[in-house]
């Protein structure tokens, strides 16, 4: 097939997506755009890929954070929350994705706030509207990534069949 020659290699693709997500994060005033990079793998039950993504995302977010170990706590809470939520629910259901985006938008500032509190610093927590905006961003990026990964999976299965 012709388009196969133009397929972007996976590492280049993810590097590009990760860089774009980081720029978006700054452009959107510090809203989290990297979380869906973990969720998209957890959703598929590909724990190895999810773990690698979680380590990379956590390292970058830790590097950008004001206090150490906030991003670690945030990622751990997300992972645990996802495992619990996906235990009985379908992680591909759009309602699940919307609901979990809302949870992520609420949890992440709580995690950073908790670590700030350990340093005796009280940071203002986001308003409900800010949580909704963050949840919309997470959901949108997640939907896009989900579509891209599904497309990639289809490509791999078609290539294997032919």
């Amino acid at each position: 097939m012709r388009w196969r020659r133009w397929r972007v290699p996976a590492p280049v693709f993810w590097l590009g997506m990760g860089s774009a997500a980081l720029w978006c994060q700054e452009f959107l005033g510090g809203r989290d755009v990297l979380v869906p990079f973990i969720l998209v793998w957890l959703q598929r039950g590909r724990m190895g890929a999810a773990f690698v993504a979680a380590v990379l995302v956590t390292l970058v977010q830790e590097g950008l954070a004001s206090f150490a170990l906030g991003a670690t706590l945030a990622t751990a809470g997300l992972w645990a929350g996802f495992v619990l939520a996906a235990w009985r629910l379908d992680p591909f259901n759009p309602l699940f994705m919307a609901g979990f985006s809302l949870y992520a938008a609420w949890w992440i500032p709580q995690a950073y706030g908790t670590v700030a509190m350990l340093h005796d610093v009280v940071v203002p927590l986001p308003s409900f509207f800010q949580i909704l905006v963050q949840a919309s961003v997470t959901w949108l990026v997640w939907v896009i990534l989900n579509w891209l990964v599904a497309r990639q999976d289809r490509y791999v299965s078609v290539s294997a069949a032919t």
Binding site: Q25, G113, V121
Partner: peptide, 15 residues
Amino acid sequence: VAQRPGPGMVLDGVI
């Protein structure tokens, strides 16, 4: 190079 680059920068800062 960056202002408010992520959710973890809870204190006002730049890079």
